[in-house]
């Protein structure tokens, strides 16, 4: 395996939440390799282990069995914990609970400050990160006065300021309105395309998965399905059986096809659908 362009290597890990009453296996014999620059979307039920997996990718959790490597560094190696967390940044679901600073720029500076970056460079990084997420105008605002989508973009800027190679986003859009979701998705895609940052995006919104390089479906602490969005989503019945949705357009295509209309089952976007329908006789 060519390790040079590998971002994260997860080798046969198991993770058990241990407590007094019972032990709960949240991840079971799971392997996954993420390449540099990839845009991965992870979907799956509540409780299927997505967040647990995400926390393994920046050493917030250590596997009970197996090995997780970030750019070749074992997450169990305490000498590398902080390097790993600098390389693999994490954005959480609730924007209110991850903003530390009382002013936008102070929050964005929090990460680089922790890394001991020099003052002049912090200022530069804060400026760049804020303009990358399109929030430069809000630099001196108080975060609690911003909208959910804006707060989440500040949280992303705070991660970018640490110059990560990879960002893991655990349902960053779950608490946002459609407008906020669009803003955040646009930002994530831009980071992936223009900044070449590897993205691992966990979501319950299937529409957010259609542009991914790879979709990973988790169920009951395992990966049950993965591939390009088109290949994954055309398995409408299998996904339904797992209790998951497919993008609305794909579902429509599926229903139309079932009714005998000549539409391929792997339509992902509205535009594509319009094309296919116009081509119908």
């Amino acid at each position: 395996m060519g390790k040079e362009n590998q971002m994260i290597n997860i080798d046969n890990i198991t993770y058990e939440y241990k407590s007094e009453e019972e032990n709960l296996i949240a991840i079971k014999d799971l392997s996954l390799d993420v390449e540099q620059g990839e845009f991965i979307v992870i979907i799956g039920h509540n409780g299927s282990g997505k967040s647990t997996l995400a926390k393994h990718m920046n050493a917030l959790l250590l596997p009970t069995e197996g090995v997780v490597e970030v750019k070749g560094m074992d997450t169990k190696d305490e000498d590398h914990t902080w390097d790993i967390r600098q390389i693999a940044g994490m954005v959480l679901q609730n924007p209110d609970n991850q903003i530390v600073g009382t002013i936008v720029e102070e929050d964005v500076a929090f990460g680089p400050e922790n890394l001991g970056v020099k003052r002049e460079e912090i200022i530069e990084r804060v400026e760049n990160s804020l303009s990358l997420v399109g929030m430069d105008a809000y630099r001196l605002k108080a975060p609690h006065l911003l909208s959910g989508g804006q707060k989440q973009r500040i949280a992303i800027a705070g991660i970018i300021a640490m110059k990560p190679d990879c960002i893991i986003l655990d349902e960053p859009t779950a608490m946002l309105d459609p407008e906020g979701r669009r803003e955040v998705m646009k930002t994530i895609k831009k980071l992936n395309k223009e900044e070449k940052i590897t993205i691992i995006h966990i979501t319950h919104f299937m529409e957010e998965a259609v542009d991914a390089d790879r979709v990973i479906v988790m169920e009951d602490s395992k990966i049950v399905l993965q591939g390009r969005p088109r290949e994954v989503f055309k398995q409408v019945e299998k996904l339904k059986k797992l209790g998951l949705d497919v993008p609305q357009v794909t579902e429509l295509a599926y229903i139309l096809a079932r009714e005998g209309i000549n539409i391929p089952a792997d339509v992902l976007t509205v535009d594509e659908m319009v094309m296919k329908i116009c081509q119908l006789q």
Binding site: R85, G89, N97, V100, K118, R119, I122, I123
Partner: peptide
């Protein structure tokens, strides 16, 4: 719950006390 989340977010952003921290 917020406190729990915040602690995790701070750790994920490499917070490890005042030692070696710079200030903007």
């Amino acid at each position: 719950r917020r406190a729990d989340d915040l602690a995790m977010a701070m750790e994920a952003r490499c917070y490890r006390g005042g030692e070696g921290r710079t200030r903007m």
